[in-house]
Design a protein around this nucleic acid. Sequence first.
RNA 1: CGGGGUGUAGCCCAGCGGUAGGGCGCCUGCUUUGGGAGCAGGAGGUCGGGAGUUCGAUUCUCCCCACCCCGACCA
Length: 569
Amino acid sequence: MRFSRMVSKTLRDDPPDAETASHRLMLRAGLIHQVAAGVYSYLPMALRSLRKIESIIREEMDAAGGQELMMPALQPQELWDQTGRKKAFGDNMFALNDRHGRNLVLAPTHEEVVTNLVKANVQSYRDLPQILYQIQTKFRDEARPRAGLVRVREFDMKDAYSFNADEDSLDESYQAMAEAYQNIFRRCGLPVLMAEADSGAIGGKDSHEFLLATDTGEDTVITCESCSYTANAEKAASTIPKLLSEQEQCLEEVATPGIKTIAALAKFLTVHESKTLKAVFYIADGEPVFVTIRGDLEVNETKLKNALHATDLRMADGEEARSAGLVAGSASPIGLNDIKIVVDLSVTNGNNFIAGANKPDVHYKGANYPRDFEADTVADISLAQPGQLCPLCGQTLESTKGIEVGHIFKLGTFFSESLGADFLDAEGQQHPVMMGCYGIGVGRLLAAAVEQNNDENGIVFPAPIAPYQIHMIALNINNNEVFEVAEKLYRDLELAGIEVLFDDREDAAAGVKFNDADLIGLPVRLVVSPRNLKDGKVEIKGRTDSESGSVALDDVLVSVQEVLASLAK
RNA sequence: CGGGGUGUAGCCCAGCGGUAGGGCGCCUGCUUUGGGAGCAGGAGGUCGGGAGUUCGAUUCUCCCCACCCCGACCA
């Protein structure tokens, strides 16, 4: 490709609205163009990268036994009513009417359609298992699109769906997909974290997320430094050091004037925060829930939601808390009636806690569970934190931010039961098909790759997904020799099947060309200039090399092939 | 949905109650070519939209819209 013919322009200034590196750099390098909030055009170079990622995904999906198909984005709402997911997605789903007034939606994902397709085509255990996949545009009306291509409303996504006769078979498909995912990210040149994940309201027993570690990621991953334990913070478990059990004390009021926070309480009474009880008040599916947890820990709302089997969970506001008889700063499960009480496991580990007394400026000391208050539910609802201990090996846990680029789920029979996708087993018994689903956000993966791979000068594309392999600059192209050598080299490289972006601009200064090359970030830069040609040489430099080298004109092709081969490893 | 911010040329921005400016980019010509060059000439704007105040509004007031950031949200 000739730079002079490219439709996209690089921007001299950083776009002021773009905060995250990938958003800023993709706009500056002319990879994407914003159309609306969370809606982008992919310019030719970004599309080339996207296609490369897609083709790696296709190869690995096919190798894992997947069959590609294409399904409509435009779907009847009725289909989503059958599974109840119209309501579940709510405002996140784009909905529209056709000319007859029929209700249609733009699909945020395709379980309904693919399950119906399988229902029509699979009747026997002999037809199973199946893995079907698609790479297509999906739509979600995100409450807040952000960070360029990281969270958008229209996006390119690979989704695979497995259909199995039983759990063992589902396990095999799930395992095959997990391995394919590892292959995909490795082949893209992207180190990925595979983390245990919350399976959500519909998910079955297993779920894993694939994340690229970046400081700007939306997800937090808890990892163990010494074993393989890796889990999304929403899901992660941790071992909390046991407290020494003391001789049980009596419940006794203690004056705590003006004390409203755990930190102030612990300081005032000169005890560790772990000797206090924290009280948090939630509304779960419209019903008030009182939660108590040790003062040094935080509530994990995902775990809480799961423990309550709730679909909607939020913190209660001050008014709701007051009307339930709670006193801000001194709230307590002790003496509470008529409210569901959830007690974190940590509260059963330790005794003689300092707890609120539901009276202003007064706390209890010597609070003990279950002597002094009851629980409707006791469960692990605490947020795993770095510094706590690994539930598998007991070593210290760490925390990393990451961007979720893939997610795999065992779905079970939710969709097949709602939509009647059954099969007959060898005994002639009818069963709903077991399902799994496996997604990769392709556009998001591109953004995450840029987010993870850049420096102060621009993008540093991993070679497998770079739009071109070579960025060739001709300096002083009006010089006849430069012109002829560069043109010939361009032809030779292309004939050798090497992808070249050839900066043939006549009017751009050397500095402009160098800066654009750094900004776009292709793996290898060649410079043809009068200075090097004097010695019969061409300059060659890897994007991450600090120094450039030079090679004789006749050896350029071989050198380039060698460098690219070493990058492919 | 709450909080904050921004809308002026392709991009980044300044400005002001009297009808709009700079830098970059773009076009023409000349000069120039190793890290965002120089000279000369030129094109390009319903100042986000609507209403109001005013002799006059890009500027003041109100309403709306769009976009960005934080939070809520993200099967």
